[in-house]
Simulated scan of single mutants.
Amino acid sequence: MSNTKNPWPALEAVPGLAAVEAEWRAKFGDGYESVKGFLRPNGKLASSHPCTVQRGCGCEHDVVMHDPEDIVAVCRCGRGCETFPLKRSDIVVYELDRAALDGAIVETFKLIKDSDSRTDLHGTTRIGVYSPYAGFRFPVYLTIQLEPADLAGVVDALTGRVDIPFILLAPSRDLCTAQTEQLLANRSSAFIPLSENVGFTGNRKLRLLRPLEDILSPFRTANLPAPKDNGGMVFFPTPPDATWGDVSIRFKDGHTVSIKVKSAGGVFNYTQMGMANKKNGDPTVQWELLRTFSDEHGVLDWSSNKADRKNQKRREILATNLRDFFRIEGDPFRLTDDGKGWQALFLISPDE
């Protein structure tokens, strides 16, 4: 008979996430071969072993080592289950390799890996950061618990100390009560059970069971601005790893530019880029300065007929405008090599 099981819930049924191979096989069923790459010997030998006698007691047996070549498992429950021999390899304790599992989840969910994943919460690691766009970074935690109260305690601690929305992963939904999930929802945070979304493929690899966009859709809806035009600055979906060198701005006319940043792009006017005068709706002097940079192909110095001492302050405000729109850190301009002008770190060109 097939013993097909979803392997994830087994991680919430093994105290200490350490057991002999026979117990892991029983917990994982047919999924054992795809999961065993995430198990590693912890250097310890077990003092007990699951009963493997056909129609036996089903209880744990005490491991008795007469010598390295004479090891037996003795029934401890008094039901008369027979003693059976063991090899040394049968009592090697295997533990879940959390670092390997965390890393595989980071890769599968396309997260930014944290350099230090440790927390002071039992069974809980901060495995990475979900950053769908530049300027948006949400911590992602993995917790493996044994009881609903333990999971509730972790959620209570995280919601009390993490002041931004976060994503909490767990092996299954079994321990997450409605109250716990509501507590997360109240903080615009998400609970994602791995058993419903991720499968094991072997060789320390995982695969998504449905598109990542679908898995994270409720979290994204709650925490990301929707693209809209309300007469002010619009949301530009800057890729999270973009730098100023990835930005390309080309003027189409005096009021409109075409923008490309890696895979993101579009056509925007000065109002949508946050450079409209609040009093009359006309372009600000920063927009005009941006156009001057385009006319000068990205370099503005005293040789330009648009040079002006007021440009220093205008450039500083323009830099702020561009950072607000693209959400890329750092100054988008640098001094020219001779120190007598400014050069854009992004590609900018005039209308053709």
Rank of each mutant, 00 (worst) to 15 (best):
S2F: 08
N6D: 11
A10K: 15
L11H: 09
E12M: 06
A13G: 15
V14D: 09
V14T: 10
L17Y: 02
E21A: 10
E21F: 07
F28P: 10
D30C: 03
E33W: 04
S34I: 01
V35L: 04
K36C: 06
G37L: 04
R40S: 07
N42C: 06
V53Y: 02
G56T: 14
C59T: 01
M65K: 12
D67N: 15
E69K: 15
R76I: 03
R79D: 02
G80R: 09
F84W: 02
R88W: 14
I91M: 10
I91T: 12
V92W: 03
Y94H: 06
E95G: 08
R98W: 01
A100W: 09
D102R: 00
A104D: 02
V106R: 00
E107I: 00
T108D: 01
L111I: 00
S115K: 09
D116A: 07
T124N: 15
Y133V: 13
P139Y: 09
L142E: 05
P148S: 07
D150G: 08
A152W: 13
G153I: 01
V154T: 12
F166E: 00
F166I: 02
P171Y: 05
R173E: 02
D174E: 08
D174G: 01
D174H: 05
L175M: 07
C176D: 05
C176Q: 08
Q182A: 11
L184D: 11
L184C: 12
S189L: 08
S189Y: 11
A190S: 04
A190E: 04
E196W: 00
V198D: 01
V198E: 01
G199W: 00
T201E: 03
N203F: 07
N203W: 07
R204F: 04
R204E: 12
R210Q: 11
P211E: 07
E213D: 07
I215G: 00
A222N: 05
A226D: 05
P227L: 04
N230I: 00
V234P: 03
V234W: 03
P237R: 08
W244L: 13
K252F: 10
T256Y: 13
V257W: 11
K260Q: 13
K260Y: 10
A264H: 12
V267F: 06
N269K: 14
Q272H: 08
G274P: 08
M275L: 06
K278H: 09
K278D: 12
N280A: 13
N280I: 13
D282E: 15
T284G: 00
V285L: 15
W287K: 10
L289Y: 11
R291P: 02
T292C: 14
S294Q: 01
S294M: 01
D295F: 09
G298M: 01
V299F: 00
W302V: 00
W302S: 03
W302I: 00
S303D: 10
N305Q: 04
A307N: 09
D308A: 10
K310Y: 08
R315I: 13
I317H: 05
L318C: 09
L318R: 11
A319I: 09
T320L: 03
F325S: 09
R327D: 01
E329F: 02
E329G: 09
L335Y: 10
T336S: 15
T336C: 14
G339D: 10
G339C: 11
G341H: 15
Q343E: 15
A344G: 15
A344F: 14
S349G: 15
S349C: 14
E352K: 13
